[in-house]
């Protein structure tokens, strides 16, 4: 007789099984991993790969870290929100709730898997940048890159779970996730480099939300000028950016836990889930 499975083993297994599901869903794999690469490809094609005058870095040196962040955010925020809400519509969350698996283990599995995919997306982006676009990575700022990545991904995973928690159903989740993320990306230096002529209130708004802090902290770590000015690896940690993201992450997590539902909203019972054929009483004894 085997004993009760340990929590560590259960978490690990949930991560692996969420990963399996991700890789077997080609559309979401494409969107998360390949889509940001297309941006890099197009931007360098359109702007060339010379220095951007205001910034003093090449197009790729600017966009590779920005789009790495965008990919990581897609893998956590967008992806987690959509897949979790759909799983709830399908009744899978309800099935999980009927097993002895502690609920937090399931959530941890989903977040762990999303974090892994975010790392894959960011690595592919930076790898392609280094291999084909002359992007440089600096050892002295790399610890900061890793920590910024983990804090940022944690923050956006929590926000993704919050969207899943409050979205009325799976069908509306892509709209909610994209309508919040994309406009924010446009004012958060992801697609458009910072521009002195832009109205200042726009950057004030962007500073309130976590995306810009994630992006800027990443960009700085890949900016040769910034790197040259900070000789110690410790100087590269940007506590203000990390703090804003941590704050958002914790707040989102608290709210997500508060509002998370395991069953489809009532009235949605015929949603995505297959309804089996109803038959009247038949075949008398």
């Amino acid at each position: 007789m085997r004993a009760r499975p340990t929590l560590g083993r259960l978490v690990w297994q949930q991560i692996r099984y969420q990963n399996t599901i991700f890789w077997r869903t080609p559309a979401s794999a494409f969107f998360t991993l390949v889509f940001p690469l297309l941006f890099l490809f197009v931007f360098t094609l359109v702007f060339g790969n010379d220095d951007i005058p205001e910034l003093g870095v090449t197009t790729a040196q600017f966009y590779a870290p920005s789009l790495a962040v965008f990919g990581a955010v897609s893998a956590t925020y967008t992806n987690l929100a959509i897949t979790t809400a759909i799983s709830r519509d399908e009744g899978i969350l309800k099935r999980i709730r009927g097993t002895p698996l502690p609920p937090w283990v399931y959530i941890a599995g989903r977040i762990g898997s999303a974090t892994y995919l975010a790392a894959v997306a960011a690595t592919i982006m930076l790898g392609v940048g280094v291999a084909f676009y002359g992007v440089r990575i600096f050892a002295v700022s790399f610890p900061s890159v890793v920590v910024t990545f983990l804090v940022g991904v944690g923050c956006f995973a929590a926000l993704g779970m919050l969207v899943a928690a409050i979205a009325p159903n799976g069908d509306s989740t892509p709209a909610i996730a994209n309508a919040t993320l994309l406009p924010l990306a446009f004012i958060s230096d992801v697609f458009i480099p910072p521009n002195a002529n832009a109205p200042s209130w726009l950057s004030v708004i962007a500073d309130i939300f976590p995306l810009k802090h994630f992006v800027v902290a990443f960009q700085d770590a890949f900016n040769p000028g910034v790197v040259a000015a900070k000789p110690s690896w410790l100087d590269h940690f940007q506590w203000d950016h990390l703090g804003v993201m941590a704050l958002w992450g914790v707040a989102a997590m608290v709210l997500a836990i508060r509002y998370f539902k395991w069953e489809p909203r009532s009235g949605e019972r015929t949603g995505r889930r297959r309804r089996r054929r109803r038959e009247p009483v038949s075949e008398s004894a």
Binding site: Q13, T20, I21, R24, G91, I92
Partner: peptide, 27 residues
């Protein structure tokens, strides 16, 4: 539990589903 409504992860195989769900139980 066998619920009235169907719900299984479509992407898994039959054996995988039984293994994943089985691993949540002691026996």
């Amino acid at each position: 539990i066998v619920l009235q409504e169907q719900a299984i992860e479509n992407q898994l195989t039959v054996t995988e589903a039984l293994r994943v769900y089985g691993s949540m139980y002691p026996h």
